Computed example of a mutant assay.
Amino acid sequence: MSLLGTGDLCRIFENLDKNGDGQVSLEELKWLLEKIGIHYSMDELESSINKSSLDFDELLYFYDSISSEETVRSDELESRESNEGDVDQETDLVEAFKVFDLRDDGFISWDELQSVLSKLELWDKRSGGDYNSMIRAYDTNNDGKLDFEEFKSMMLFTIS
Score class of each variant (00 low, 15 high):
51 K>H: 00
70 E>P: 15
55 D>S: 01
23 Q>W: 02
56 F>I: 07
56 F>R: 01
80 R>V: 08
77 L>R: 13
58 E>S: 06
61 Y>L: 08
83 N>D: 12
59 L>P: 08
41 S>C: 13
33 L>H: 07
54 L>I: 06
88 D>I: 01
68 S>M: 11
19 N>P: 08
44 E>V: 11
40 Y>M: 00
49 I>K: 05
32 L>Q: 03
38 I>P: 10
36 I>H: 12
43 D>P: 11
30 K>H: 06
58 E>R: 05
57 D>W: 10
43 D>T: 15
33 L>Q: 09
67 S>H: 00
85 G>Y: 01
55 D>L: 02
54 L>V: 11
19 N>I: 09
16 L>T: 02
66 I>N: 03
60 L>E: 07
75 D>Q: 09
32 L>G: 00
71 T>N: 15
47 S>L: 13
70 E>N: 14
26 L>C: 03
60 L>Y: 07
64 D>L: 14
58 E>F: 10
17 D>K: 04
18 K>N: 09
50 N>F: 09
80 R>Q: 04
49 I>G: 01
60 L>I: 11
74 S>A: 04
49 I>Q: 12
50 N>T: 07
84 E>G: 12
40 Y>F: 12
18 K>P: 10
85 G>D: 07
39 H>D: 13
80 R>H: 13
86 D>I: 12
62 F>C: 07
23 Q>K: 08
71 T>F: 15
51 K>A: 08
46 E>F: 07
37 G>R: 04
58 E>Q: 03
38 I>G: 09
38 I>C: 07
56 F>C: 11
57 D>G: 09
63 Y>T: 03
30 K>A: 02
38 I>A: 01
25 S>A: 01
25 S>E: 00
38 I>Y: 00
76 E>I: 14
80 R>E: 01
32 L>R: 11
82 S>K: 00
53 S>C: 05
83 N>I: 06
31 W>C: 05
76 E>L: 13
82 S>E: 04
32 L>E: 01
37 G>H: 14
54 L>D: 00
83 N>C: 12
75 D>W: 00
79 S>E: 12
47 S>E: 14
26 L>Q: 05
31 W>K: 10
81 E>V: 09
77 L>C: 13
68 S>N: 14
63 Y>I: 10
43 D>R: 14
39 H>R: 15
62 F>V: 00
32 L>C: 02
24 V>D: 05
40 Y>P: 08
50 N>G: 05
82 S>W: 00
23 Q>V: 05
49 I>L: 15
75 D>R: 09
31 W>G: 01
60 L>H: 06
51 K>Q: 03
79 S>C: 09
69 E>Y: 14
21 D>A: 02
33 L>Y: 08
27 E>V: 08
73 R>D: 08
17 D>Q: 06
64 D>Q: 14
21 D>C: 11
50 N>L: 07
67 S>E: 02
83 N>S: 13
29 L>P: 10
68 S>A: 13
70 E>F: 15
32 L>A: 04
50 N>D: 07
60 L>T: 05
29 L>S: 09
37 G>N: 06
52 S>F: 13
70 E>Y: 15
69 E>V: 02
27 E>A: 11
49 I>H: 07
